[in-house]
Amino acid sequence: MNTQFRKGIIEMCILALIARKDMYGYEIVQNIAYYTEINEGTVYPILRRLTQEEYFVAYLKESTVGPARKYYHMTEKGQAYLGALKLDWAEFSKMVDEILRGECHE
């Protein structure tokens, strides 16, 4: 699959996961990797950018089992962004589904 296309979808998945609860990098990677094969190295750069764009705030939390983990928490801005993405995704996937099913618009 086209990498840009894939990255856009991964971005949306990351947003959707963090909207549910605060997560740390490895947790996010594992969650996505559970569903699909991803290049695990790509998740951190996306997380970084989304944080810079103020969709997330990152904070360090001490872990009982190892070094501190960086957690990502969704901001209101991030929620609004995800909302818009979801709407567009629904519309987009519906359109693609219809075309793939072979329905003709006449």
């Binding site: 296309f5 990255k7 790509t42 950018r49 764009e53």
Partner: peptide
């Protein structure tokens, strides 16, 4: 990948970032 995301960040001004969704 890091540089790509970073460069991407630099190139886009804060306001239109919302418009950017890396899809076709």
């Amino acid at each position: 990948q890091i540089l790509e995301e970073n460069g991407h960040n630099v190139a886009i001004t804060p306001a239109p970032q919302k418009n950017d969704f890396k899809m076709p």
